[in-house]
């Protein structure tokens, strides 16, 4: 009797779990399924969850650049360039800062950490006004270098906080033992700290990657009318709101844009949540 009720409850919970998963997945599945539907099915009077006659036509028109006049690769290249350079830069800068706040006691240490918490909450739609005017006079508008600068700096508060926890988790005793054995600071850094912090570096770079890959406000404001410089988020919205909306192409472009982020996210899922929860938002 007791066993049966427990089994029933477990089944009930599982049904609930499947329901939550389905509701959560539905928008993503709908995006992918629309991307594979021919136009007749997209605008059909009775929508079906799966394409009856799947087609690659939407992807082909996106990749060939039918709508915007430039192939997909152009925008993928822009996004990859901006993202990779800013990820490398911000991870390196954050590692140095993380070592400072995790390994040294100095004045302003706590103030610096609190300052990071505060600046990461500053609204980007406010700062973009001033940065637009600054970059205008510096000739950094319509320029991917400007975006790289912004993305590097804006991901620093969170990446420093995340990396700080990974650096702090490396036992000091290991470094002390190496120092007693006569290893210099650089040797300790390369041989002990870096290998042990490497998983943290991966998680942190993934965060910086997602931030730069997804970023919309600055790209929208800085890239203006120079279509060839667009990054993928601007490219995806370019389709939308321009006369007749071709949802097949938008969903295909959006799928191509979204899948890499999701793959990354799932690969480092556990690290990501640990890092975000203990590093950036909740230390509990």
């Amino acid at each position: 009797m007791r066993l049966r009720s427990r089994r029933a409850r477990r089944a009930g919970l599982n049904v609930l779990g499947v329901l939550v998963a389905l509701v959560t997945l539905f928008p993503i599945l709908w995006m992918v399924s629309t991307a594979f539907k021919p136009a007749g099915e997209i605008y059909s009077l009775t929508p079906h969850p799966l394409p009856a006659h799947p087609t690659l036509g939407n992807f082909r028109s996106v990749i060939d650049g039918k709508v915007i006049g430039l192939p997909y690769w152009n925008f993928l290249k822009n996004s990859l360039f901006v993202t990779l350079v800013s990820v490398i830069a911000s991870t390196l800068i954050a590692l140095l800062a993380a070592i400072a706040v995790a390994r040294f006691k100095f004045r302003f240490r706590t103030s610096y950490l609190i300052m990071l918490l505060i600046v990461q909450m500053l609204p980007q739609q406010a700062m973009v006004i001033a940065l637009f005017l600054d970059f205008r006079s510096l000739g950094l508008l319509d320029n991917l270098a400007g975006l790289i600068l912004v993305y590097t700096a804006f991901s620093l508060p969170v990446t420093i906080w995340m990396l700080r926890n990974f650096v702090a988790a490396v036992p000091r005793e290991m470094e002390e033992a190496a120092a007693i054995d006569g290893a210099g600071p650089m040797r300790i850094f390369w041989r002990i700290l870096l290998p042990l912090v490497a998983p943290g570096l991966v998680a942190t770079s993934v965060f910086a990657f997602i931030f730069a890959w997804n970023e919309f406000i600055f790209a929208l404001t800085f890239l203006g009318t120079d279509t060839a410089k667009y990054t993928l988020p601007i490219y995806v919205t370019y389709f939308y709101g321009r006369g007749t909306v071709d949802w097949g192409s938008i969903m295909a472009a959006s799928t191509l844009f979204t899948i890499p982020v999701m793959a990354f996210f799932l690969i480092v899922q556990r690290r990501m949540t640990n890092g975000l929860v203990t590093g950036a938002a909740v230390k509990g």
Binding site: I28, M31, S254, T258, V261
Partner: peptide, 16 residues
């Protein structure tokens, strides 16, 4: 699955 919703970029989620 929740992670996938979280990972969906704001731009993609909006157009979806």
């Amino acid at each position: 699955t929740a992670m996938l919703a979280w990972a969906t970029p704001a731009v993609s989620a909006s157009v979806i």
